[in-house]
């Protein structure tokens, strides 16, 4: 890679202690994000995508994170977030890497006004007077399309709708001009019309600021809408990654094609002749993972002795297209 990437995640595993033994929620995940790029992290609930996002921020105190998460900082130096001390990682959080969460309804502190919380965020990493922070917060709220920013600053979260709260969260996350925004299912809890607005604002702000976004979602429609590149996770592992156009037109991993086929699309029946095909079964428990390819019990291309013996490697099927499937060549040939 000639270009200097912003975030390099290398062989990251996250495990939790449990009464039944360690739960390895994320296993050997590697990917990189370039400056200004929007990367989608796709998967079902429980696939480890949110855990990966939280691990990047070092926000899971109960978990053990191994591997390297290398961030190119604003001053050009590189830092491994996994090995940073608590006080150093604090200078990264909110400052260089910001995060917004799935539940805007419970993301804001009920005791303080929006203004107090926004100014707090603005002043954590920047030397601002309260007045300067207030002015900056008003500007940030305007940037996310908040109708009456002054009034919003004085109100408490319970008077705002979910969409408004998520706008506040975005404005707050942007206050220190981070180079990477981790958006963990930011629109899942919102109405569809509001989802579209939020995605629009995220795209617009991304263009204006040039920051990178790691967009965590289970919604493939949104991936097509917002992302340049997508990483598909299944049962704690990356199973496929590539540019969004590649993945959507030539998915190599049966799980990705399964996801695409289970996506409802207007007029699909008439034009494509294929109805929605749900993926049978459900995500395996992290305590009882199947041998070999983790997807084989649900896979239509399963061949005994091939898929259930060795864990397939993540290999390049194409330039910048990676797939983890023992049979992807066979499947690709028959598809043609």
């Amino acid at each position: 890679m000639a270009r200097n990437s912003l975030l390099e995640v290398e062989n990251v595993s996250v495990s939790f202690k449990s009464a039944q033994g360690p739960i390895r929620a994320v296993r050997d995940v590697s990917f990189r994000i370039n400056p200004g790029e929007i990367v989608a992290l796709v998967g079902e609930s429980g696939s480890g995508k949110s855990t990966t996002g939280l691990a990047t921020m070092q926000l899971i105190p109960s978990a053990t994170v191994s591997g390297r998460i290398c961030l190119t900082r604003k001053d050009g130096t590189k830092a491994d977030l996994v090995s940073l001390s608590e006080s150093d990682i604090r200078r990264v959080r909110g400052n260089e890497v910001a995060m917004i969460f799935q539940e805007p309804m419970s993301s804001l502190d009920p005791v303080f006004t929006i203004g107090t919380q926004m100014c707090e965020a603005a002043r954590v990493h920047q030397r601002l007077s309260y007045r300067q922070a207030y002015a900056a917060s008003i500007k940030a709220l305007e940037a996310v399309g908040m109708p009456d920013p002054e009034k919003c600053m004085e109100t408490y979260q319970h008077k705002l709708s979910g969409g408004m709260r998520q706008r506040v969260m975005i404005a707050m996350a942007l206050s220190s001009k981070p180079s990477l925004l981790i958006a963990d299912e930011p629109t899942t809890a919102l109405d569809v019309t509001i989802q579209a607005q939020i995605v629009e604002y995220l795209k617009r702000i991304q263009k204006q600021t040039g920051m990178a976004i790691l967009f965590i979602t289970h919604n493939l429609g949104l991936v097509a809408e917002i992302a340049d590149r997508a990483i598909v996770m299944y049962a704690g592992e990356i199973v496929e990654s590539g540019s969004v156009s590649e993945l959507f037109t030539r998915p190599r991993m049966p799980y990705t094609s399964g996801l695409l086929k289970s996506l409802p699309r207007l007029g699909r029946k008439k034009t494509l002749g294929t109805p929605i095909e749900p993926i049978p079964g459900s995500l395996p428990s992290p305590l009882a993972l199947p041998s070999g390819c983790k997807f084989h019990p649900r896979c239509g291309h399963f061949v005994a002795g091939v898929c259930d013996t060795a864990v397939p490697e993540l290999e390049s099927s194409d330039q910048a297209h990676q797939v983890r499937c023992a049979r992807w060549r066979d499947i690709a040939r028959t598809a043609q």
């Binding site: 969460f101 419970s106 303080f112 707090e120 965020a121 990493h125």
Partner: peptide, 26 residues
């Protein structure tokens, strides 16, 4: 365990700021 406490950490607040400014009043 509330999400807004995690949000406070994600802002980059120190543990004692999180504890005294956000957990305490709540």
């Amino acid at each position: 365990r509330r999400l807004y406490i995690q949000v406070a950490r994600a802002k980059g607040l120190s543990e004692s700021a999180v504890s005294f400014r956000h957990i305490l009043p709540n």
